[in-house]
């Protein structure tokens, strides 16, 4: 009797210990979400990112090869707030995988984990305002405090999908959230010490509101007058005069946006241009915290130059 129980226990342990046997397959649309999931899941999960950090997450090529990891996935983590609406929906249908369909246990919209969203339209929205997102600005992964909320949510979901390791997922998520909150606080304090005039920024696409919110930066203009629509010369001229009047010296943009306009503007305003990577180098093993630290340093250097 005792022997059978022991054997059963041994067999179970052997199964869990062999890494290939029971890995939870996680697919994340953005490398930032993939990096969080990989850190939370550790050896228990295998994570695939659909987009590279150098890709504009609004316009990822829906290559049929992306269907392969999606068809096997136990969990799909996506940004939400319509960031991926231009490419994810058909992939989701063609993946033929009920676990990651809306309502499935593996369908995780990361934006639902973020308590406070910014730029949530108050009234009726209209496409004449540009390509705006009805649920609010979707670029919350630029803020480690919100990434901490997402990490806790991913931990909870992995715990639900793989209850045998629930404690591991929750502990890891908690540890990462604490680390990110500490990092956020540290950097916020460092930036707060800068004079207010130094903390003014101009952004290319309106994708840095969460970062500005975190670091106490004041966004005084966007080079794109309306999201997703190429700026007109008249608007660029207005941005330039705003920059001159306010003394704001820094233009901020992701590396996947064209940079000629920003370069010219920063020259004319005698300022600087900071071209930041759009996301974590997940494919090179970078963690979300490492990437965030790097962005903060890059930004701090640019602001204090």
């Amino acid at each position: 009797m005792f022997t059978t129980r022991l054997l059963a226990a041994l067999a179970l342990t052997a199964g869990l210990a062999s890494p290939a046997a029971a890995k939870i397959e996680v697919v994340a649309t953005l490398p930032d979400l993939a990096a969080l999931a990989a850190e939370i899941g550790g050896d228990l999960v295998s994570v695939t990112a659909l987009a590279r950090p150098s890709e504009d997450p609004h316009y990822v090529d829906p290559k049929p090869s992306l269907l392969l990891p999606m068809s096997r996935a136990d969990v799909l983590i996506f940004n939400g707030l319509e960031l991926e609406i231009g490419w994810l929906p058909p992939l989701l249908v063609n993946a033929r995988n009920g676990r990651i369909q809306p309502g499935g246990t593996g369908y995780l919209d990361a934006s639902t984990l973020v308590q406070t969203k910014l730029q949530v339209p108050a009234g009726r929205i209209d496409r004449a305002q540009g390509d705006i997102h009805p649920g609010g600005n979707p670029h919350f992964t630029h803020d480690p405090r919100r990434a901490a909320e997402v990490a806790l949510g991913i931990g909870a979901r992995l715990a639900a999908v793989d209850p045998d390791h629930a404690a591991t997922y929750r502990d890891n998520a908690q540890r990462i959230a604490t680390e990110l909150r500490r990092l956020a606080k540290q950097q916020a304090a460092r930036f707060a010490a800068l004079p207010a005039a130094k903390r003014q920024v101009v952004v290319y696409h309106d994708s840095w509101v969460y970062l500005a919110d975190w670091l106490g930066l004041e966004q005084i203009a966007t080079v794109e007058e309306k999201p997703g629509i190429k700026p007109s010369p008249g608007h660029v001229a207005r941005v330039l005069s705003t920059m001159k009047q306010s003394g704001a010296g820094l233009i901020l943009q992701e590396e996947y946006y064209p940079r000629n306009t920003s370069e010219t503007l920063s020259k004319l305003a005698k300022g600087a241009l900071a071209v930041l990577r759009g996301g974590v180098h997940f494919e090179r093993g970078e963690t979300y915290a490492e990437h965030t630290q790097e962005i903060a340093d890059q930004l701090y250097d640019a602001l204090t130059k």
Binding site: A11, L12, A14, L16, A20, A22, E25, D74, T105
Partner: peptide
């Protein structure tokens, strides 16, 4: 005995794809 067989099966099943997935 059934329980043992079940445990053995679970331990060699290649992950969630083989019907062991909660979904």
């Amino acid at each position: 005995c059934y329980r043992l067989a079940l445990a053995l099966l679970t331990s060699v099943a290649p992950g969630p794809a083989l019907g062991a997935s909660p979904a």
